[in-house]
């Protein structure tokens, strides 16, 4: 007797992605470049975040034909984004055979009050967070993998650092609390009590936690690994750079050798221009993507 779609196999695929780089791609050709460079998975989306930021308009799930093309182009896992709360887009992605769904703030939210009930799906979900409470709310809804939100499409790592440090700080703080103080902590975090108790007991999130949102260089990827990320997502950082295959390969090597400055120095040479960035501090409140979702 065998069982599919269990929590263990959902979380398990994220565990297989650890130590790896997941790259945003918008065409089968991009996907092949990413796979060739050593990506452990690709994220299929309609436009990379920096273009979404630039072009504006409503950003939605990608065209199924394009997703099929990407699935057929590579043998590594393929992820795709659905709008926050848009459970029908998620059902479509599941029907297409996507391996992981990102319920993503990078797309225009479809529901400003409710995220998708992810327990009802066989396919696993990854969701973004800015802090521990947000991570545990998503896990409570069934997310089997977490990533920082960062600030996608900027090439500015500052928000991903903030979000990763915040999650780690809040985990450490929980571990200093007495058992009878955990109820109030759960209330303040706005997170399910059982998950808060589990995090206090184990000293870490119950699922894999990747860094995302602003990673643009090999050193950025290594920085996030040093701060405790299990792996990294790179969006615009690769295909908006001058030499995508070289940058992609360099970020893969830097993620493996994140503790080895000699390797990071070697792979960082001669990469050409990185993506043009936007300092997050120059953005207006309404231009931020990380504030989408709750």
């Amino acid at each position: 007797m065998s069982q599919t779609g269990t929590w263990a196999v959902k979380v398990g695929l994220a565990q297989m992605l650890k130590g790896g780089v997941i790259m945003d791609v918008v065409t089968p050709e991009h996907a092949k470049i990413a796979e060739e460079a050593g990506a452990c998975a690709v994220m299929a989306l309609e436009r990379v975040p920096s273009d979404i930021r630039k072009d504006g308009g409503v950003a939605r799930m990608s065209d199924p034909e394009m997703i099929d093309g990407i699935i057929n182009a590579v043998t590594i896992p393929v992820m795709a984004k659905a709008r926050i709360g848009h459970f029908v887009e998620a059902e479509v992605l599941q029907a297409l055979g996507i391996d992981y769904i990102d319920e993503s703030e990078v797309l225009t939210p479809a529901d400003e009050a409710h995220h998708i009930d992810k327990h009802t799906f066989k396919v696993p979900f990854v969701c973004g967070c800015r802090n521990l409470g947000e991570a545990l709310r998503r896990i409570g809804e069934g997310a089997a993998m977490i990533r920082t939100k960062g600030e996608a499409g900027t090439g500015d790592i500052v928000e991903a650092v903030r979000h990763m440090r915040t999650v780690q700080d809040e985990i450490r703080r929980l571990q200093t609390l007495a058992d009878d103080e955990i109820y109030t902590a759960a209330k303040e975090l706005g997170a399910p009590l059982a998950l808060v108790q589990q995090v206090k007991r184990e000293g870490r999130l119950p699922v894999v936690n990747f860094a995302a949102g602003g990673v643009a260089t090999p050193a950025d990827a290594a920085l996030m690994m040093r701060l405790g990320a299990d792996g990294v997502f790179v969006g615009s950082g690769i295909f908006k750079s001058e030499n995508p295959p070289l940058v992609a390969k360099a970020i893969v090597e830097a993620t493996t050798h994140y503790q080895d400055a000699d390797v990071i120095a070697r792979v960082s040479r001669g990469l050409g221009k990185a993506m043009p960035g936007i300092a997050v501090s120059s953005l207006a409140e309404k231009e931020l993507l990380a504030t989408r979702g709750w």
């Binding site: 065998s2 599919t4 196999v9 695929l13 599941q94 055979g97 996507i98 396919v123």
Partner: peptide, 15 residues
């Protein structure tokens, strides 16, 4: 044979 059982929705547990 790689990915022999299908995509992620086909991942499974068994004794």
């Amino acid at each position: 044979h790689r990915n022999a059982f299908g995509r992620q929705v086909d991942s499974f547990e068994a004794n």
